[in-house]
Design a protein around this nucleic acid. Structure first.
Length: 560
RNA sequence: GCCCUGGUAGCUCAGCCUGGAUAGAGCAUUAGCCUUCUAAGCUAAGGGUCGCAGGUUCAAAUCCUGUCCGGGGCGCCA
């Protein structure tokens, strides 16, 4: 539609380039002002006439094609009114592919997301990476990309050593079988409590020298040396943890193409570091620690005891993944606190001669706050993700019972949680509260699902109808708005991919649902003289809302 | 100290990239609407120095500089 307006303006003798015109065209604040507008300030400067006069003059000069109903000058603005009948004809023809695009054809995107730590339960803090990453996967696939989701499990580190110590001392086998997540958490919390009294304040964990921390370090060393018994416990812990993770992933309907432990890249990483050392790109300290200079600062990439550190694994993992997938882009979805880490990782890879480092992107997201509490696994002070989901599903059940309908409580509850997480832009912190998560009214997932269910109900009640008899009468304002909003969906999807922000789709879905509800309120469908057209419009709405919620990982229900 | 973030209605946020018309939603508050396709809905009202101060511009919540307040990161934790 924009294209058409650019052509009209060009024909009217404007001395601006296409791209300049496109930049200037905007959507007016109110639909009373039209659908698109063109401000004349720049022309006013060029032609040294008042912008109001230029706008007025242009209205007289312009010749309108069928797609544009009328053009009006209002002050310094030239306002275009789109012929909604023509737009409506296009909209009622959309199918389930609406919004899809081939722009990603033959391109691979790897998305690294979720990445929980083995031995710790998934809590409200993990929800963001998981849901954001999953939504990005869906968006990329929708746009034709081959998207590959990788779950990079934190299966190594001092917390593992602690857990192994606790496992040997206090494990309750039956409890582990019954509820692996709870039992592992109990072990971890117990260890931390024991350790706490011995900790020296102000000293980093790594350099703590006390009975408990030392035992954990020892276990970690044994694990690295390949001690059979320790390895067995480690495997047990991973297996039990994964059971817990999978339960949550199932509830969330999140899949990965690959689940891999961080520790598997230890050797790859070390080899790359050794090579860099040989080529003199990296240097070593007297005590054997290896570093590179990044931004005039030393960044250590191998510890003095020759074991890998976080970044060593990530170097190995990135290189291996590029070999495996030859991706167009790889996105790491993690907490914003790791921004520096990833910036440095990318620079190090570049320094080492891996040009694919330009294809790496870090998508940082803000903290989830729950009231004023700080979430701490070590004290067991956490809100389990599983509990959040269960609680919202319960609330959905209650609502459904109240209404005596046939809704799907799981879809509604999970949708509510996902929506809360996705609607704010990734960079912002999210204030999580039960009040908000359990609110199913207004700007919420259930509100959107509800509007879909209402639409479905109309379609169901109408039964079969004759599609060939469609006659589009003059559209009411509510119909106009709905047609216009639906037509914007494809653009929104592309914007949200480019800005890596599913929140745009979330906002759009809500606005679309709002507009539909207004339509629902003012335009009766069944029995109306525009029944056939309205049925098709309602169906187009269903398709659009279904697609946009799908991109957020939220399912629709025909009834609720 | 250096770097990264955020500050918009009582609360939660959108708008900022790419400057334009009266700064938008939701929650909460108040007042209406269920003999008509699901009231998880709709309509209306009140509520704003867009942290503060400069600058650029015909035009600044939006761009630039400074400043205050909150959060975070800063040589071998993940």
């Amino acid at each position: 539609m924009k294209e058409i307006i650019i052509q009209i303006l060009k024909k009217s003798g404007i001395t601006l380039k296409d791209s300049e015109i496109e930049k200037l065209i905007e959507v007016p604040p109110s639909s009373d002002f039209g659908d698109y507008s063109f401000p004349c300030f720049i022309l006013s400067k060029k032609e040294k006439k008042s912008p109001d006069k230029i706008a007025e003059h242009l209205t007289e000069k312009i010749k309108l094609p069928g797609e544009i109903e009328k053009v009006e000058s209002k002050g310094p603005y030239l306002n275009f009114f789109v012929n909604k009948k023509i737009l409506a004809e296009q909209i009622i023809k959309i199918n389930s592919n609406f919004g899809k695009s081939p722009i990603g054809k033959n391109k691979k995107i790897v998305i690294d997301f979720s990445a929980p730590n083995i031995g710790k339960p998934m809590h409200i803090g993990h929800i963001r990476s998981t849901i954001l990453g999953d939504s990005l996967m869906r968006i990329y696939s929708f746009l034709g990309y081959d998207s590959i989701g990788v779950n990079y499990l934190g299966d190594i580190g001092l917390h593992i050593g602690k857990l192994i110590v606790a496992y040997e001392l206090w494990l309750d086998k039956d409890a582990l079988k019954k509820n692996p997540v709870q039992e592992l958490l109990r072990l971890y919390v117990k260890f931390c409590a024991k350790e706490k009294s011995k900790l020296t304040e102000g000293v980093e964990e790594e350099f703590q020298d006390n009975e408990w921390t030392n035992r954990a370090k020892e276990k970690l060393k044994l694990l690295e040396l390949g001690d059979k018994n320790t390895e067995k416990i480690w495997h047990d812990i991973r297996k039990s943890s994964e059971k817990g993770f999978n339960k949550v992933y199932e509830m969330l309907n999140v899949d990965f193409n690959e689940t891999v432990g961080q520790s598997e890249f230890s050797e790859h990483g070390k080899k790359i570091v050794t090579n860099a050392l040989l080529k003199n790109i990296a240097r070593s300290e007297k005590d054997g620690a290896v570093y590179v200079e990044i931004d005039r600062q030393k960044k250590f990439i191998l510890r003095s005891n020759q074991t890998a550190s976080y970044i060593t694994y990530d170097i190995g993992a990135a290189v291996e993944r590029y070999k495996k997938y030859n991706f167009e882009k790889m996105i790491y979805v993690t907490d914003f606190r790791q921004k520096d880490h990833f910036d440095k990782l990318f620079k190090i890879l570049k320094l080492f001669g891996y040009d694919f480092s330009d294809k790496l992107v870090h998508l940082p997201f803000g903290t989830i706050r729950f009231g004023k509490e700080i979430i701490a696994t070590r004290t067991g002070d956490i809100i389990l993700l599983e509990d959040v989901l269960k609680k919202t599903i319960e609330k959905a059940e209650k609502e459904i019972r109240k209404r005596k309908t046939k809704g799907d409580a799981e879809k509604v509850g999970v949708g509510a949680v996902k929506y809360v997480v996705l609607k704010s832009s990734p960079s912002a912190d999210v204030q999580f509260s039960w009040e908000q998560a359990l609110n199913f009214e207004g700007d919420s997932g259930p509100y959107i699902q509800y509007s879909y269910a209402r639409a479905s109900s109309i379609i169901k009640k109408a039964g079969k109808f004759n599609k060939s008899k469609i006659k589009i009468l003059n559209l009411t304002p509510a119909e106009n708005n709905l047609v216009k909003k639906i037509s914007m969906f494809p653009e929104i999807v592309i914007n949200s991919e480019q800005s890596l922000n599913p929140g745009l789709i979330a906002n759009y879905s809500f606005e679309l649902a709002q507009i539909f509800n207004e339509f629902y309120h003012t335009c009766p469908v069944i029995g109306d003289k525009s029944e056939a057209f309205r049925l098709l419009l309602v169906d187009a709405f269903r398709t659009t809302i279904k697609n946009s919620l799908y991109l957020l990982g939220i399912e629709v229900a025909e009834e609720m």
